[in-house]
């Protein structure tokens, strides 16, 4: 296998869960809701995928179950913040803590078992093409889902009427409501979508990335996904770029070590986070362009007046 393609594949595997989770959160935030519980929903997805795959022997069923589990778990957040209008930051954090605890409990008896891998697809001929064959035609199904998701979300948000409504709700729920939009209902749907995506991202971790279950196996990826949404100024294709950039820095630091550059490994390990901060600063420096894309009512609760 050519080295560039091998590295590209490794980066893709590292970037895919970030991309999926961030894409879900992007839709949530576009509707004006800030859900900091991505990490919790993701880890629930990871444990569900693993357990269901173990029980049924099918990675596909595991994946579907993870999507459902992520969505179901996000409903808890939706009920709190949308129906009971609680503080979104606090509710999101509670969701993360709860998710880490519950998943560790569910998965306790599944630690240390070899998992069921979701096999990469294989198209005779195309997969063996030089340079890009395997990258384009020989990856796991979730990779393709992540790309489809990016295309789909981009199309939905900017090319459909429903997408326009969603964005309007995120910017000004009051007027959207006055114009007849179901603010709370649409936000619920957005939150569910975000949960489903986070669940899928978790499934990628325990079915593709490392087919095994250990508690806390998301290891902060949910938070990185949140950072990516801001990084991308709420635009789907930039989320894709950001996820791959972050994946590249993460993998790059390991390569730098293997090459024996002699830098302290702690510094290299911290590099992805420092890079994220730097990029966030660069992106948000331009106040006006961020303002245009930021959902104006992000994080603010909405109660229809009666």
């Amino acid at each position: 296998m050519e080295m560039t393609q091998a590295i590209l594949l490794t980066v893709a595997t590292a970037a895919t869960p970030l991309l999926i989770a961030a894409m879900g959160e992007l839709v949530v935030e576009r509707s004006g809701v800030l859900n900091l519980g991505v990490e919790g929903m993701m880890v629930m997805g990871a444990v569900t995928a693993f357990v269901v795959a173990q029980m049924t022997g099918s990675a596909w069923l595991g994946m579907v179950a993870a999507i459902l589990a992520g969505a179901a778990f996000s409903l808890l957040f939706g009920f709190l913040t949308l129906t009971l209008v609680t503080n979104q930051v606090a509710s999101g954090l509670a969701l993360t803590i709860l998710g880490l605890g519950v998943s560790a409990m569910i998965g306790e008896s599944y630690v240390g078992l070899p998992g069921i891998r979701m096999e990469p697809i294989h198209i005779p001929g195309l997969s063996q093409l030089p340079l890009v064959g395997q990258f384009l035609f020989g990856q796991d199904p979730i990779f393709y889902l992540s790309i489809l998701l990016t295309v789909g979300v981009s199309w939905f948000l900017f090319r459909t009427r429903a997408g326009l409504t969603l964005r309007a709700i995120g910017d000004n729920p009051g007027s959207a409501h006055a114009l007849g939009a179901h603010v709370v209902r649409i936000r619920y749907l957005a939150v569910l979508f975000g949960g489903a995506c986070a669940g899928l991202a978790g499934a990628q971790l325990s079915l593709v990335y490392v087919p095994q279950w250990v508690e806390n196996m998301t290891a902060g990826r949910g938070w990185i996904a949140l950072a990516l949404v801001v990084f991308a100024s709420w635009r789907p294709w930039r989320v894709l770029a950001g996820a791959y950039l972050f994946g590249a820095v993460t993998i790059g630091q390991l390569h730098a070590q293997a090459l024996g550059l002699g830098l302290p490994s702690q510094f290299l390990s911290a590099l992805p986070y420092l890079a994220t901060i730097l990029v966030l600063v660069l992106i948000s420096r331009n106040r006006r362009s961020t303002m245009i894309n930021t959902p104006a009512s992000l994080g603010k609760p909405f109660v229809p007046d009666r």
Binding site: A6, L205, Y209, A258, L259, G260
Partner: peptide, 26 residues
């Protein structure tokens, strides 16, 4: 011998990434 430190005793994701990076380097 190519050494990669993951700065953790137990982080499957990172260990997998490290293994892949090492294999990619030959």
């Amino acid at each position: 011998v190519k050494v990669v430190w993951v700065n953790s005793w137990f982080d499957p994701g990172k260990e997998a990434d490290a293994a892949k990076a090492l294999i990619d380097q030959g």
